[in-house]
Amino acid sequence: MTTPRTYSASCHCGAIRFTFTCEEITSGRRCNCSICIRKGTVMSSNYFSPSDVEVEGQEHLALYQFGDKNVNHFFCHTCGISPFSTVASVPPDYQGPARPGDYRVNLGCVHDLDVLSLDIQVINGKAL
């Protein structure tokens, strides 16, 4: 196990800045659902609890939800970048690791992280 580190990140214009703490990032996820395909983001492989994430500039965040509205898709209302999403709710029969309030981070927003060098897994969000 590696020592957790704190990563700094921001949207493109810098209005939304955030930090989060986790093990070294070595992988990411792409999703084939309709919104993720259009956004083209590489998201964190893991979810982060709210206690591991600090956000500044929340007043610049806009929210988009669709479908079952289980995910809060946040974006900067100035530059349009989606820095992260949070879990709004989980279905009663859900057995996975996500809990309401957990974050998934757009790794393209993380400073000093070469997203294109990560091991990227494609998940079938279209089937969810």
Rank of each mutant, 00 (worst) to 15 (best):
M1R: 10
M1C: 10
T2N: 14
P4H: 02
R5W: 00
R5H: 03
T6S: 12
Y7L: 05
S8K: 13
S10G: 14
H12T: 12
C13G: 07
A15G: 15
A15T: 11
I16F: 00
E23D: 15
E24C: 03
E24W: 02
I25H: 01
T26R: 13
R29H: 05
R29P: 00
R29A: 04
C31K: 05
C31T: 06
C33G: 08
S34N: 13
I35G: 04
I37V: 14
I37A: 07
I37S: 07
R38N: 11
R38D: 08
K39I: 04
K39F: 03
G40V: 06
V42C: 01
V42E: 01
V42Y: 00
V42G: 00
M43K: 00
S45N: 04
S45R: 05
N46L: 11
N46R: 07
N46H: 10
N46W: 05
N46V: 14
N46K: 08
Y47A: 15
Y47P: 00
F48E: 04
S49Y: 00
P50L: 05
D52A: 15
V53F: 00
V53D: 06
V53I: 13
E54I: 13
V55D: 02
E56L: 13
E56Q: 14
G57P: 09
E59F: 01
E59H: 12
H60D: 03
L61D: 11
Y64H: 15
Q65H: 05
Q65A: 03
F66M: 13
F66G: 11
G67T: 06
K69A: 01
K69D: 00
N70P: 00
N72Q: 05
H73I: 08
H73N: 14
F74Y: 15
F74P: 03
C76Q: 12
C76Y: 04
G80V: 09
G80Y: 05
I81T: 15
S82V: 07
P83E: 10
P83Y: 03
S85G: 08
S85A: 13
T86D: 03
A88E: 14
S89F: 02
P91N: 12
P92C: 06
P92K: 13
P92E: 14
D93M: 02
D93P: 03
Q95F: 01
Q95M: 05
Q95A: 09
G96C: 10
G96F: 00
P97M: 08
P97E: 15
A98F: 07
A98N: 09
G101R: 11
Y103H: 08
R104T: 12
R104H: 01
R104G: 10
N106V: 04
N106I: 02
N106K: 06
L107T: 10
L107H: 03
H111T: 15
H111L: 06
H111S: 09
L113W: 07
L113D: 08
D114V: 11
V115A: 11
V115G: 09
V115E: 10
S117C: 07
L118A: 11
L118S: 10
D119K: 13
I120W: 02
Q121E: 11
V122W: 09
I123Y: 02
G125V: 09
K126T: 08
K126D: 14
A127Q: 15
A127Y: 06
L128G: 10
